[in-house]
Simulated assay, not measured.
Amino acid sequence: MYTNSRENEVRLLKRLWAELPTICPKCHQAELEHLHKKAKKSNLDWKCPACGEIYRTINMLSELPDS
């Protein structure tokens, strides 16, 4: 998980899927950008331009704890 709780992780996922400006939860230095910026394939994968962390939302969703 990239955040400190399940609720915050769900909030992060919702922001990414809604394509709202989201600051990287790891480094807090930059807004996340589409990983596939040129292809504009989907809004499922994001990357922080500052620290290079990649956020794959499908993986994040499957790794969420049950409670």
Rank of each mutant, 00 (worst) to 15 (best):
S5L: 09
S5C: 10
E9Q: 09
L32N: 11
H36L: 07
Y55V: 01
K14Q: 04
D45L: 06
D45I: 09
Y2C: 01
P21T: 04
Y2H: 02
C27N: 05
S67W: 14
K40C: 08
L13P: 03
K41M: 12
C27A: 08
R6D: 00
S42D: 09
N4C: 11
E31M: 01
M60K: 02
T22L: 05
H28Y: 07
E19S: 10
L12M: 03
K38C: 03
K14H: 05
I23C: 04
S42H: 00
R56D: 02
A50I: 06
S5K: 05
K14E: 08
C27S: 07
E9C: 08
E33P: 05
N59S: 08
E31H: 02
N59R: 03
L32E: 10
W46I: 02
A50S: 05
L20T: 11
P21A: 02
E31F: 01
I58L: 09
E53F: 07
S5H: 05
R15G: 02
A18K: 14
T3N: 12
T57V: 07
T3I: 10
K14G: 01
M1V: 15
S67F: 15
D66R: 11
Y55F: 13
L16H: 05
A18H: 13
I54C: 09
D45E: 11
L13Y: 04
E9V: 04
R11L: 09
R56S: 04
E63T: 15
I23T: 06
E19L: 11
W17R: 15
S67E: 15
D66W: 01
E7L: 10
C51Y: 03
C27I: 13
A30K: 10
K38Q: 08
E33N: 07
R6Q: 00
K38R: 12
R6T: 02
P49C: 09
T3E: 11
E7W: 03
V10Q: 11
E19R: 11
N59F: 04
P25G: 15
N8Y: 14
G52M: 03
A18P: 13
S42Q: 00
K40H: 12
T22K: 12
H28T: 12
P25D: 14
H36G: 03
E7R: 10
T57N: 07
Y2N: 01
R6L: 00
L12Y: 09
K41Q: 13
M60C: 00
K26G: 05
C27K: 07
L32K: 07
A50D: 02
L35Q: 11
L12A: 06
Y2D: 01
E63R: 13
K37V: 13
R15S: 03
E19H: 12
A30P: 10
T22N: 10
E63Y: 09
C24K: 05
H34D: 05
E19I: 14
I54S: 04
W17H: 15
Y55D: 07
K40W: 11
W17P: 14
T22Y: 12
N59P: 08
E53T: 10
M1G: 14
R6E: 00
L20W: 12
H36M: 08
P21H: 00
Q29I: 09
W46F: 12
L16D: 03
E31P: 01
N4G: 13
